[in-house]
Computed example of a mutant assay.
Amino acid sequence: MVSTIANVDVKQKDSSQALVIAISCSAVLEDTDEGDGQKLGAALPLLEALQTVNRHLVAANSAESLLFDVLLVTTDERQQQSARIVSSTKHHGLEVSRFCFSGREDFVESLLENQVQLFLTAEPQEAAQASQKGILSALLGQQSWSSPSEQLRVLFCDNDVITTTPANLKPATQRFWTQLGAMRERFGVLDSPVSILVMTAHGGRQKLGDTLVTLRSHGVNADEAYSLAGAPQGPVLDLLRPHFLLGDDDLK
């Protein structure tokens, strides 16, 4: 059974205009062995970065509708903890519009019902389940803990870095990048709260150039671009500290 609770403490976004992102609850709030307490998870810097972007957008235009609309989704049997999850989120000042309580078997249903455009989780199996239903998904990697909270950093890379996604994700991927590109255009070249990074693992400058052209065809201009030409990826990822990674298969 799926249930959704609106956060009355947060101004609700226009879901037809906003960029709807769902984050697995387990990546935001982790259970502890200390009574009923919960500690913050790897997605905290991401949530803070999304809030920073929204704050800048509204400051520039109070009527702005292209905002991040954030949902917290349970992907396990935690419905009985709903009150504690809501109160913990509010206690930490996290801007979550809605809470979707579901289980392992039906959490994808909650993503579809809420027209989620990007699902983020730390669990590969959850990402695969959502991808199979046409929902763009990405993993929160080990860099997430050290990602900046004052700037959203999204890395676009080839499939040597991430898992190939099904062909049915093409529409979802294109829509996400188009909206993110439009959001990035709201800001200037310097001191933007959104940074779009591009990295290719192989193919040299030609591969990188083709990738940049593909992104521009969807209204996305990169802030930084890197061609590794076979060099190790780990050191670059540690330097860039992206909040999450997305691949290029579905934009070809």
Rank of each mutant, 00 (worst) to 15 (best):
I5N: 04
I5C: 05
A6W: 07
K11F: 03
K13I: 00
D14E: 14
V20H: 06
S24H: 02
E30M: 09
E34K: 12
D36R: 11
Q38T: 10
K39Y: 12
L40N: 12
L44W: 09
L47A: 03
L50Y: 06
Q51R: 11
N54H: 01
V58N: 06
A59Q: 14
S62E: 15
E64F: 02
E64A: 11
L66K: 14
V70C: 06
L72R: 05
T75Q: 10
Q80M: 07
S82N: 09
A83M: 08
V86Q: 13
T89A: 07
T89I: 07
H91A: 13
H91W: 11
V96N: 01
R98T: 02
G103H: 06
S110I: 01
E113G: 11
E113L: 13
Q117F: 03
L120T: 01
S131W: 03
G134M: 09
A138H: 05
G141K: 04
S149V: 08
V154I: 13
D160L: 08
T165G: 12
T173K: 06
T173G: 12
Q174F: 08
Q174A: 14
F176E: 03
F187A: 01
D191C: 08
I196T: 08
H202F: 10
V213G: 07
S217K: 12
V220I: 06
A222Y: 03
G230K: 10
A231M: 08
D238I: 07
L240N: 03
